[in-house]
Computed example of a mutant assay.
Amino acid sequence: MPDKRKADQAVVKRGTTAVDMRIYKAVVNAVMSHRLPPGTHLGEADFCELYQVSRTTVRKALQRLAHDHIIELRPNRGAVIASPTPQEARDIFAARRAIEREIVPLVIQNATPASIQQIRAAIAAEDAARRSGDRAGWIRLGGEFHLLLAQLAGNHVLQRFMQELVSRCSLIIALYETPGSTMCENDEHQDLATLIEQRKVKEATHLIEHHLQEIEERLRLADQDRKVNLAEALSGF
């Protein structure tokens, strides 16, 4: 019997669970990098060809993405990247400000030299992407910085909420951003890290709220309409 359990575990590791999670993460990363903008159609056949998997595996990944509001499953059209309305955008940003106001004090409460080092390393990665001209990578790393804070807060419920909110905010920014704007200033992340290190709860909480408010205020309510090559958007993930 022990041998059978080991065999079953091995099947799970190399089976559809691992593959559909890979598809899920690829789509989320492409959304966070703005390589898959809202409204993009995701064809099951394209995923089958790209990942050499069955439609059953693809549908499992798409169901998970729909559950997390990254995509919408529409009758007669299939899966498309979600397109939040202006009111949904305002509601999502309001929710994110409320969540991050709770996260920052917890990060400070739990701060250690190791966690501060993680924060600084994340900012350094952002800065490297910015200086190299990798806008997609910079955008994705900016979102991951906020997810790191949620992780360091030590509250798994808040972390799950943030995972969804950051992905949905990336959709909103892709849909409504002003061309040429910088959506997540690296200097503000640097300033926030310094306040966390100095354990200045009030100032750090104010800064994160101001930071998110500024991002929202730089958005414009205009639809983006461009065609996307799925294989190109998912390359590298």
Rank of each mutant, 00 (worst) to 15 (best):
Q109W: 03
R130G: 10
A98W: 02
S167H: 12
Q159T: 03
I139G: 12
R120S: 04
R96P: 03
G142W: 12
R135D: 14
E88K: 04
L73N: 02
F145A: 01
A121M: 03
D127K: 15
A79Q: 05
V58C: 14
V157C: 00
I99A: 15
E164S: 04
L65Y: 01
A129L: 14
P75K: 11
V107M: 03
A129R: 09
G137R: 03
R64E: 13
R131Y: 13
A98M: 02
F93P: 01
A114E: 11
A114T: 06
E100L: 13
A95C: 11
T112C: 01
W138H: 13
T85D: 06
G154A: 07
R160C: 04
R77T: 01
D68V: 04
A128L: 15
R77P: 00
I81M: 08
F145T: 01
L148D: 00
L158M: 11
E102Y: 04
L149C: 07
L147Q: 08
I116L: 15
V104H: 08
A124E: 07
G133N: 12
F161I: 02
Q63P: 03
H69R: 13
A124K: 10
R90E: 14
L147C: 07
F93Q: 08
Q159E: 10
N76D: 09
I139M: 15
R90T: 09
R64Y: 11
A114Y: 06
V80I: 10
A136Y: 12
L141R: 12
A124L: 06
I99H: 11
F93M: 10
R130Q: 15
G142S: 09
R96Q: 15
R97H: 11
D134C: 10
A98S: 08
N110Y: 03
L152G: 04
N155C: 05
I119Y: 01
S83P: 02
S115P: 00
L73Y: 02
R140V: 10
A153Q: 00
E72K: 07
A79V: 04
A82N: 10
H146M: 06
G78S: 02
I119S: 03
A94R: 06
Q159N: 07
F145S: 01
I139T: 14
E126V: 10
A153N: 00
G154L: 04
A121N: 11
I71N: 05
I139C: 14
R96A: 12
I108N: 05
V104K: 09
L152P: 02
Q159L: 06
R64H: 13
I99T: 11
E72R: 05
R130D: 15
R135Y: 14
D127R: 15
L65K: 04
I70N: 05
L65Q: 03
H67S: 08
L158Q: 08
L65S: 02
S132A: 15
R131F: 13
S132Y: 10
L65R: 07
S83Q: 12
I123H: 07
N76P: 01
V104I: 15
V107W: 00
E126I: 08
Q87T: 08
G137K: 01
Q159Y: 07
R97V: 13
I103M: 05
A66W: 07
D68Q: 09
I108C: 03
I119F: 02
R140N: 15
W138I: 01
E102A: 09
E126Q: 13
